[in-house]
Design a protein around this nucleic acid. Structure first.
Lengths: 134, 134
DNA sequence: TCTTGACCTTCCAGTCAGGGGAAGCCCTAT
DNA sequence: ATAGGGCTTCCCCTGACTGGAAGGTCAAGA
């Protein structure tokens, strides 16, 4: 398989796959013409990485997860710990986003959105940090 | 006010303030010794930017919001449109994060987290995309 | 056989929003 | 006079790619 085939197979852009080779996540063979040659195993790894990335794991977490995946002597506790650490991060981000969303929602509701210049959104940004919202 | 004072006042790191000058968000005066000199107006702008950033607005959105803030002939509709666009983005991110969170939560729950190698998390990453989760 | 076009290669630069740190000036207190 | 802290510019680093240029390779069609 050439890079285009494995890109189509995994849904990852060819550029991304080259990048993953660059940083040592994968090490595809090379044909005599210099083209990367991907076998089952490399394609499988790329799928693994793609799915881990889509769950929000960082590249370094993906690297660790991949190593654990290939380590027959792993302890599932190690995998679980990584996943839990990531989960906490996701939860923190959700909480932060929700707080922003709430403030934004209130501000938007309070803004007339017409041709006049008066705007509670700008007023809040301008002199905030005194009275609490909500 | 020197940069350190306005940094303490606004809570923004001095590096960030210099960066904001670099990209033209603010244009502080200079003392004869080359130090940046911040007046009321610049400090106020920095507070504005800091609060807008904390609501997740991008730098470019901050630039536009700041311009609207200083335009006495603005229409609040313009402000509202920007805020609504940003709100949609935040909502999309929350939705995506929640989906990741749900999958992660299920996977973590199903993993024993002990010394044995068997791990549903790795199994899912390895051969996912066939059976639906949940 | 030649050419066209799709595919592949490397390398360089840019994204976003700053952060780290070096080298060197300035100001104040002791 | 000297020590320290603050200020300046400058350049590189981050994560995870993405875009584009310049050029090699391959299969199909005229």
């Amino acid at each position: 398989m050439n890079i285009g085939d494995v890109a189509a197979l995994t849904g990852l852009p060819a550029k991304t796959i080259r990048y993953y080779e660059d940083i040592g996540l994968i090490t595809p063979q090379r044909d005599t013409n210099g083209y990367r040659r991907f076998g089952e195993s490399e394609a499988h790894k790329l799928g693994f990485i793609g799915r881990a990335r889509s769950l929000g794991f960082s590249i370094e977490e993906c690297r660790t997860l991949l190593a654990l995946y290939e380590d027959q002597n792993r302890a599932s506790a190690d995998v679980k710990r990584i996943a839990q650490g990531h989960l906490e991060l996701v939860d923190a981000k959700i909480a932060e986003s929700k707080a922003m969303r709430a403030t934004l929602g209130h501000l938007i509701d309070s803004c007339a959105g017409d041709h006049r210049p008066d705007c509670p959104i700008l007023e809040d940004l301008a002199l905030s940090a005194k009275e609490g919202h909500d």
